[in-house]
Amino acid sequence: MTDNSTIAGTEQEIVDEFSLFDSWDDKYEYIIDLGKRLPELAAEHKTDENRVRGCQSTVWLIANDREGKIFYEADSDSTIVKGLISMLIRVLSGHTADEIIEAKLDFIDRIGMRAHLAQTRSNGLVAMVKQMKNYALAYKLKNEVNDGYRSTETKSN
């Protein structure tokens, strides 16, 4: 059994699932299915601000935090890209900023996806991962600043 409570564990789980497919047709069917099942992002979130640059297709990504953990939602006009996002969300959502920042995300290589996608499309994937990590980084910085305020306040009291 793999341990899906950690990022590495979920990555391993995906790698194991992909090892069951013997053709790329099957892999794509699976990714397309994931893409179709990923809930649509509400129209109000499909703004320019939430767009991920560097993709041939349009990708929107938003992040929320609850109890110190980050949760992502995303959408795309490309079903395959949506499937890839769905995997990234499954791996990263619900983890702490530190865990996300440090995530290796080598499952993309291990399932052969990076090599399979033409460079230009792979760049889109890289842009997406970067954006997800940037959210985590921003969240972490924001909290450090807040913590900093709190500690100065304590001191001055």
């Binding site: 790329w24 047709d25 794509y28 397309i32 041939q56 297709s57 006009d77 490309s78 079903t79 395959i80 890209v81 399979h116 996608l117 033409a118 499309r121």
Partner: peptide, 13 residues
């Protein structure tokens, strides 16, 4: 209802 990129990827395959 189909994005050109998805077609491109599946044709390349």
């Amino acid at each position: 209802k189909v994005h050109p990129q998805d077609i491109g990827i599946l044709l390349d395959n």
